[in-house]
């Protein structure tokens, strides 16, 4: 009997709890909602407004979908753009290296030419041109004379008579001439030495020439700026 009473009290208490909780929630909702503006409109007004809002919602939903698709596309494009950018960058550095606009190093040879005490004969620009040409023919990838990079456009020339200064791209160079070349060491050496090699010829004339193999020849970048004025 007592147990039954307790059960009854608890269940009735719980139902009272639920009822009052719902009532108070309802009070709160009704209090907070702007009833006046809703009540002021007739039902047809509300309905038409609802329809228009629904249409707007549908439209916006469509737009949202479109935008999502676009964003996806842009993202993919961005990814591919990044890839092309990397490719282009690689290409650019490669081209710059080819042009001689970067500092490079690698196996090669260093040729040192001393004029010695010869009074009547000096190294002239033709000798240097000849050596450079031989080196290029032997597959030299980078050449410098007294740390002046020799690139495709480089001119080696002299001013005035044959006893004048040797100039490379407008810079005057003096003996001793140090020519650095990066490439296959054997080929480079073979092109200069040996039968009919130009260095041998010069040695016969009495110049002191050393050829040194170096596994890490360092050649600096071309220092002048390259620009096109006439080429189109």
């Amino acid at each position: 009997m007592k147990k039954e009473k307790i059960v009854m009290a608890v269940t009735i208490g719980i139902s009272a709890f639920i009822l009052v909780a719902i009532i108070f929630m309802q009070f709160k909702v009704v209090e907070k909602t702007d009833r006046i503006s809703i009540d002021a409109m007739t039902e047809s007004d509300l309905r038409s407004e609802l329809i228009s809002w629904r249409e707007k919602y549908d439209e916006l939903q469509l737009q949202y979908q479109d935008t999502l698709v676009k964003i996806q596309e842009y993202k993919e494009e961005y990814k591919s753009d990044e890839e092309t950018e990397k490719l282009l960058e690689n290409e650019l550095t490669e081209l710059k290296t080819l042009l001689g606009e970067t500092n490079v190093h690698g196996q090669g040879i260093i040729i040192t030419i001393n004029e010695g005490n010869l009074q009547n004969d000096k190294i002239n620009y033709e000798d240097l041109l000849y050596i450079v040409n031989e080196l290029k023919a032997a597959g030299a990838e980078a050449i410098s004379i007294n740390d002046n990079r020799v690139i495709n456009r480089t001119g080696i020339y002299t001013i005035g008579t044959e006893s004048g200064f040797i100039k490379i791209d407008g810079k005057r160079i003096l003996a001793p001439y140090i020519i650095k070349a990066i490439g296959n060491q054997t080929y480079l050496e073979g092109a200069l030495l040996g039968n009919g090699g130009y260095v041998d010829e010069l040695r016969k004339w009495g110049f002191e020439i050393q050829i040194e193999r170096n596994d890490d020849v360092k050649i600096d970048a071309y220092s002048n700026s390259l620009s096109n004025k006439y080429m189109k």
Partner: peptide, 10 residues
């Protein structure tokens, strides 16, 4: 129950 319900509802 009523008191607890009121507190929860508020």
């Amino acid at each position: 129950g009523c008191i607890l319900g009121a507190i929860l509802g508020i």
